[in-house]
Design a protein around this nucleic acid. Structure first.
Lengths: 197, 197
DNA sequence: GGTATAACCTAATGGCCCTAGGTTCGCAAA
DNA sequence: TTTGCGAACCTAGGGCCATTAGGTTATACC
């Protein structure tokens, strides 16, 4: 009987595909093994267990998403960069719902694994770079980054959960939201009295 | 042997408590039955199954959250209303992480059940009411509501997932985000050319 | 061609979801 | 008080899943 030639990465990839096709909760050891033409137990040579697998899928997704955003925003600045960034984020979530969902789970990822993942650092650099054109300084920069990420994530999460009734197309609200954020970044309000320094 | 005197509502409540204490993924039929001093099968007299139970928890949470927001924003307007609304939202998510997580699952709730839940309609009224002071008209009103909800949800979701490094306290970024949103609502940008009407 | 490594397997344990069908509690009417 | 009766709860069992222990075999390298 020929070997399947599996590796941790190949298993992770298959898991990610399964997550997108059938939903993240359908990514089980047995179902994945079946898809790979292998017995359940065989997967444990490549992956520590289900939780580890999900962590790897999350890491993969984070890296992929960051890469897409990097490609989309390359060479752009200001409003164009903001829109490209946001659209790339949303499109990734739409195209890969299972992978995207995996990134939302409370972080319980093998530190060793996370160590050599280029994602997080790259993602931070990207976001700060995109905001460079708006002339913000710390700590406003951090606050702005967090606001943007919150909005992007929140929008696609609510969208995925069916949170937007059909009244108005989500796409339209999305564009207006980005316009609003752009305006906001151009006129970022100064800290009020009473806010911590 | 005395009866436990269960009912669908009591089971749902126990499930919600378990979700907050141990995590939503720990809410299993068997564990819940154990906590209630009852055999697994007994729960199926009150609840259709695990999915139904999670739907009920989600509905309960949505109602509770709406109620908290209603109480917090009662009699307020403008900036005060916005902050009270947002803080009530975030505080509910903090206090009831399991319940809150339940509301995020793609909607697959028994229609009959959802029918007599006061939550959704009430929530919509509340949000539109809060925005009344800003003088927005449709469709900007809908867009603004969606932006706010996205930001609120995104922020607490990222917070819960450990998305904010410890550099700056999340609370500070939260306050600045709300300030920014308030400013934004006061100067809501008009639709740009090319946006759909 | 021999050998080591890792890919893959069989076997087995225990947990969980859920159904079918039986038993007993508690209330309310006769 | 007794007799029903419905609902609350149970036993038994099937099927899927995660995980471990330990054995077998393909494959790459010498």
């Amino acid at each position: 009987m020929p070997r399947a030639g599996l590796t941790a990465h190949r298993v992770t990839l298959a898991g990610a595909e399964l997550a997108d096709e059938a939903g993240l909760d359908q990514v089980t050891m047995s179902r994945l093994a079946r898809r790979l033409g292998v017995k359940d137990a065989s997967l444990y040579s490549h992956v520590r267990g289900l939780e580890d697998l999900r962590g790897r899928i999350a890491l993969l997704a984070a890296d992929e998403k960051t890469l897409r955003i990097a490609e989309a925003t390359a060479g752009l600045a200001g409003r164009d960069a903001l829109f490209a960034y946001a659209d790339a984020w949303r499109e990734y979530a739409h195209r890969h719902p299972g992978r995207y969902l995996a990134t939302q789970t409370p972080i319980r990822i093998d530190p060793e694994l996370a160590a050599d993942a280029p994602g997080p650092r790259r993602a931070v650099e990207l976001t700060y770079g995109m905001l460079r054109g708006y002339g913000l300084a710390e700590p406003d920069l951090t606050d702005a980054v967090r606001l943007l990420r919150s909005t992007f994530h929140g929008f696609v999460a609510l969208e995925a959960a069916g949170g937007f009734a059909h009244a108005r197309p989500a796409q339209d609200s999305w564009v207006r939201a980005l316009d609003a954020l752009h305006t906001l970044l151009e006129h970022w309000p100064p800290a009020r009295e009473g806010d911590s320094p």
